[in-house]
């Protein structure tokens, strides 16, 4: 029986087999010229296979990549793209939500306020981070950070990666709806620059609550949707197994959303996805983020806010 590694998606499994073979050859203490040649051949094969698989991803496969168990999260990127980071906690009203990480960061010559969703890696961490699903105190912490940024003329950078806002009794009791709505209200007119980047899963209102801004970007294999493909399938198809079709119908991939002008930029991922090469991904992310910051901080702030409002106003397709 073939081994099944949960850190590899079903369509990544052929890569795993090759990887194992390469590793075996690599670890062989008696390397011969012949085995070296074989290894080179396998490496080439690996590259070609990766390219073949990743050139033809379905929307459902991209959704799986966006939620890949090894997908880099905010805290993986922070040390790789920021020169410094000082985390700031709490909403000053109720608590500190570990599903959102925020603080002051330095990137190149820009000082910024960072706000990002954070999912957990192992079981314990996942629970602690509530699977990246924020409660009202998380959104209110984010709001506090935005106000801080506005006050001190610092650009806001948000990383979005959440299945959605937390559907829980406590969250509803503290008015989850109001917490999200307030952020949308304030972000539309915040007197500082806002850049939002979907790094993994852009889940509905929970994503948008830190996702209104001047530049909306997506990592190549991230998704952004009004509802999860599974949720949509179970409501419209009455069958959660139709998620594959729902993913296609919902148009949630970066390419499709750019075509519809709902996002501004796609940030390319290394071959095989962000999780295959954190260093390469971080460097791609950093270059793009610095470029965006350079560009956006040159624009007069009043003009920028006017542009932002015009853009938000333009969302929607209808007939008159």
């Amino acid at each position: 029986m073939k081994e099944f590694n949960p850190n590899y998606l079903d369509f990544e499994q052929p890569l795993l087999e090759l990887e194992n073979k390469i590793k075996q050859l690599h670890n062989d203490p008696e390397k011969t010229a012949k085995s070296e040649a074989a290894m080179e051949k396998l490496n080439k094969e690996y590259q070609n296979l990766t390219k073949k698989i990743f050139d033809n991803l379905s929307d459902w496969q991209i959704s799986q990549l966006a939620r890949h168990p090894l997908r880099p999260y905010s805290l993986d990127y922070i040390p790789n793209i920021f020169d410094s980071f000082n985390e700031l906690h709490g909403d000053r009203m109720f608590g500190d939500d570990p599903a959102i990480v925020s603080g002051l960061a330095k990137i190149d010559n820009h000082n910024i306020v960072f706000i990002g969703h954070q999912k957990g890696r192992d079981a314990k961490d996942k629970v602690m981070r509530n699977f990246g699903m924020s409660k009202p105190e998380g959104y209110r912490k984010a709001l506090r950070m935005m106000r801080l940024a506005e006050k001190f003329n610092l650009p806001v950078v948000t990383f979005i990666d959440t299945p959605g806002a937390y559907p829980g009794i406590d969250a509803e009791s503290r008015n989850q709806s109001q917490a999200i709505a307030e952020n949308l209200f304030v972000m539309s007119n915040l007197k500082t620059q806002i850049i939002s980047i979907i790094i993994g899963e852009g889940g509905s209102g929970g994503a948008l609550a830190i996702g209104v801004g001047d530049r909306i970007c997506m990592l190549q294999n991230s998704i952004y949707s009004v509802i999860s493909p599974e949720g949509c399938a179970s409501i419209l198809w009455k069958d959660s197994k139709k998620a594959e079709q729902a993913a296609e119908a919902l148009c949630i991939t970066s390419g499709k959303l750019l075509n519809h002008k709902l996002i501004d930029l796609i940030i390319p991922e290394p071959l095989g996805g962000a999780h295959r090469d954190l260093t390469a991904m971080s460097s791609s992310l950093k270059i793009n983020l610095v470029n965006l910051l350079d560009e956006i901080t040159e624009i007069n702030i009043d003009d920028l806010i006017l542009q932002r409002k015009k853009k938000i106003e333009s969302y929607g397709e209808f007939e008159i």
Binding site: A181, L184, F185, V186, M187, I227, C232, I235, Y315
Partner: peptide
Amino acid sequence: GARMQESLFSLFQMAKTSAALNS
């Protein structure tokens, strides 16, 4: 809530209506 059949266009109406209310 948001209309699923219009996908992200629907989600972004949340931002649009909230921005209008800000004005």
